[in-house]
Design a protein around this nucleic acid. Structure first.
Lengths: 228, 228
DNA sequence: AATTAAACGGACCTCGGTCCGGATTCGTAA
DNA sequence: TTACGAATCCGGACCGAGGTCCGTTTAATT
């Protein structure tokens, strides 16, 4: 899974949890998933699979809160240290559980059918992007919340960087005179899992209102009309 | 400090850390600081002061990361349980450290001189609000980051609710046709301490650019012109 | 002085995260 | 094919910090 850099602060424990070693590639705007399992040793790969399976089972049966590092290790018949070596920390494990859907989503953005994928006008793609994100948030809310990194790393996790880059790209076309970097952060914040959870679960805001809010936000930010 | 409800999930440990008992007041849009120390017993009040002083000293001397509950308790010559009874949890303690500046800021919004306080047109107040928040973030960045609540409570902490209410109020005037509730979340997200830290410290974005970004965001959201 | 509600304190628990001695795997060469 | 050495991985003991519990102490009240 690699997630190059997002857990780089945890150097001491182990050499490093699955690192990308490739060329600089500073501009390659990767998906955050390049070279996922570089070349794991047989037992390591086996244990990795076991751990993911065990973690997924725990989530399904007892909720994300039950995903304790020790519990996962035990359920996978593996030592606790192995879990940390493989995934770095709890957040890393949880994010690994989201990798599959993440990859699919990224693929849909990069090469899927319009309006989510390329081919539609930028503003339309932005609208579709937000709606898709909101749908995703509703589905995987629990995991997304549990997998949220600490404040320092929140904005540096590869998946997030990718999404931000995507939004910034669309924004550059849809609102050329804006600071698309900063504005992309703002737009993404509207789709934040924690916020969506707060609004829907705690405030009783219906999903349609959230969707309308997104469409209106996009319209205002791009200074276009809201198709309603 | 009361923070009614934001640490209500921690019921079992102690009766409750300083709760607000007053009337419903659902609509009173409080500042989040009503009735701060209801009527603490003498020893309790003394220990509370000691603890805050000790915590502040630790922050000043060794940074927010050194503010361990045990360390604070020891530095204040108090039992560990006392810290938790008084402040609920670590976040509560850290937020209490920010109370002073928080109150001052709220007062400035409610009754200070324009354009921050009442008297200026809403859009202008919004602009001033963002700039003030950004300044605040730069000053108290470390504490603000450390005091950030977990994802579930992030949007329910009284200070946050107040700020959101304030922005929503201004927004209702400046952009009457928008969903000011949702939009206020978006605007506030731009000023989030973690984001500001990421952009300035990790991305090297200069403060002026952040400020310009805010002014532009306000202009777009309210569909006005950017005064630049 | 007696009573009672509140506060105290520190032992205790859980869980994330670390460390390191020992076991496995894999490439290499006889 | 087997032997062997090095790199990698394993596992669970260990640590620190947040959070809890409950028997004891102390401040307010009458």
């Amino acid at each position: 899974m690699l997630y190059a850099g997002f857990m780089s602060a945890a150097l001491p424990p182990f050499p490093k949890p699955e690192e990308t070693v490739g060329p600089p590639e500073l501009l390659r705007l990767g998906t955050g998933f390049e070279e996922d399992e570089p070349c794991l040793r047989a037992d390591a790969a086996r244990n990795r699979a076991r751990l993911l399976e065990a973690a997924a089972r725990l989530v399904a049966e007892h909720g994300a809160a039950a995903v304790t590092m020790e519990a996962v290790a035990a359920a996978a018949s593996v030592g606790k240290g192995t879990v940390f070596r493989r995934f770095g920390d709890r957040t890393g494990l949880l994010m690994a559980l989201l990798d599959h859907s993440e990859k699919k989503f990224q693929a849909a953005l990069l090469s899927g059918p319009p309006p989510l994928g390329p081919g539609a006008p930028p503003v339309e793609r932005l609208r579709a992007f937000g709606c898709a994100m909101l749908r995703r948030s509703v589905d995987e809310l629990e995991l997304q919340l549990a997998a949220e990194p600490s404040a320092e790393r929140r904005y540096t996790s590869p998946p997030r960087r990718f999404l931000r880059g995507h939004v910034a790209l669309l924004l550059r076309q849809a609102a050329p005179d804006a600071d698309s970097e900063l504005l992309s952060h703002t737009l993404l914040a509207y789709l934040d899992a924690a916020l969506v959870h707060h609004l829907t679960a705690q405030c009783g805001v219906p999903p349609e209102r959230l969707r309308d809010g997104w469409l209106d936000l996009v319209a205002r930010v791009t200074r276009t009309e809201c198709p309603d």
